[in-house]
Amino acid sequence: MSSPLAAPLTWRVARLVERRDETPTAQTLVLDVPGWPGHLPGQHVDVRLTAPDGYQAARSYSLAGPAEGERVALTVQRVPDGEVSPYLTDVWATGDPVEVRGPVGGWFVWRPAELAPVLLVAGGSGVVPLMAMVRARRAAGSRVPFRLIYSARTPADVIYADELRRRARDDHGLDVAYVYTRTAPKGWRGEPHRIGLADVNTHGWPAELEPLCYVCGPTGFVETVADLLVGLGHQPRRVRTERFGPTG
């Protein structure tokens, strides 16, 4: 884990054991990683691909839930024309190896021993490490109140849609609210829009409760939400961010 005096990390060979469609453009990939040491919700791995000519490309992917022994799950959103994500979603076959380094990232984590209320704000595939926290909360039997605000383009782009519906019903103390940027489902109140002050104010926690806030998604989205939270009086050091990159 991220205990301070662990040994340096090296790349290990992982193999694909299973893939599941989450949306038309996102898949959950289950990897077998021999010797996996376990991880905390919010941590990620670095995945490295090597071309036949020796060229290498590495990208980070969040761990989507608690490990099952040596099996870990990632959820990858295909970025058109990307170097790494289309390979993982379209080409990588069951049994094929990739190199993985991790778990890494000891800052953007939630520990079930924390008792403060939690606000999770996700943009697009930024829901992945936040879902790991939701799943870990349930697995630990934690009663810490969680609120998730999830911004997606359309209802069809919502990753983990069925599980979130089920958990919002069954996991006591978990609230889930959605923001749609392009197309909203029938019966949703309001017009599609980018996340704004009203969304964060209505579906978040008041700053006086001193919640821990985790914001994850495209860089611009994270920037907007972190600014809104600080503007609402949240302490910057209680707003943890994980930027995934340019757009989303």
């Binding site: 991220s2 990620h44 980070s60 380094r101 890494v104 800052w107 860089t219 611009g220 990159g245």
Partner: peptide, 16 residues
């Protein structure tokens, strides 16, 4: 705008 958080440095720095 296209930058990431220092949290992602953990992997590369843990090689060193």
């Amino acid at each position: 705008m296209s930058y990431l958080d220092g949290n992602m440095l953990d992997g590369p720095l843990r090689e060193v």
